[in-house]
């Protein structure tokens, strides 16, 4: 074995050792790396009232109520992960992306009655990027309602984008009226 190949195998061995050490460490701490808890996890094991947690999930369609208490807006909405729902109460201005059907992460504490008091609400957008006109077209044709779940496969509406681009003014006129 030459010195070069000895060095190569030494480096390979070190990388394997380091890689498995990192993998084991991350695996052991994975519950701490997780950014938020799901509503079903909160239901199953409610955290103590003084512990700040992050609650993540989708805003249930039709559950958003806005009130005004002493000039500050109070928002009430349900967050679900499909199995359980938690009612969130948040005083303050919601981010631009907040809407029904949107994924959100709320930071706060769980009240004894099971509701969630949020001190901060972050909007989480998904990995789907599509032009406004396409989203409106999908909604109008009934192929997709953003309040209930993810957008359809991009392949199904990409051809639509290409076909729609030349007659963009035509599709916009009914909107303007």
């Amino acid at each position: 074995m030459t010195r070069k190949s000895r060095r190569l195998w030494l480096v390979v061995a070190c990388m394997i050792g380091l890689g498995s050490a990192a993998a084991l460490t991350l695996n052991a701490f994975s519950s701490n790396i997780v950014f938020f808890m799901a509503p079903s996890q909160v239901h199953a094991k409610p955290p103590p009232a003084d512990r700040t947690i992050r609650l993540g999930g989708m805003v249930v369609a039709g559950s958003v109520h806005r009130e005004k208490v002493k000039d500050s807006p109070v928002n009430l909405f349900d967050v679900t992960d499909g199995q359980a729902a938690v009612t969130v109460r948040y005083e303050g201005i919601l981010p631009d992306l907040f809407r029904e059907g949107q994924s959100v992460v709320a930071v706060g504490t769980v009240n004894p009655d099971g509701t969630f008091r949020a001190s901060e609400v972050l909007a989480k957008h998904d990995e789907t990027y599509m032009p406004k006109e396409v989203a409106e077209e999908l909604r109008r044709s009934g192929k997709w309602d953003p309040r209930f779940g993810k957008a359809p496969d991009a392949a199904s509406w990409n051809t639509m984008t290409a076909a729609d681009t030349p007659k963009k003014p035509a599709t916009q006129t009914p909107d303007g009226n």
Binding site: S30, I33, V34, F35, F36, G56, V105, L122, K124, H125, D126, E127, T128, Y129, M130, P131, V134, A151, D153, A154, A155, W157, N158, T161, A162
Partner: peptide, 20 residues
């Protein structure tokens, strides 16, 4: 892990979830 950052839109295996 679940993160605030969204998953990748362009992957080696799947079709991109992004308008052309």
């Amino acid at each position: 892990w679940n993160t605030l950052h969204q998953p990748d839109s362009i992957t080696v295996t799947g079709a991109p979830t992004m308008s052309t």
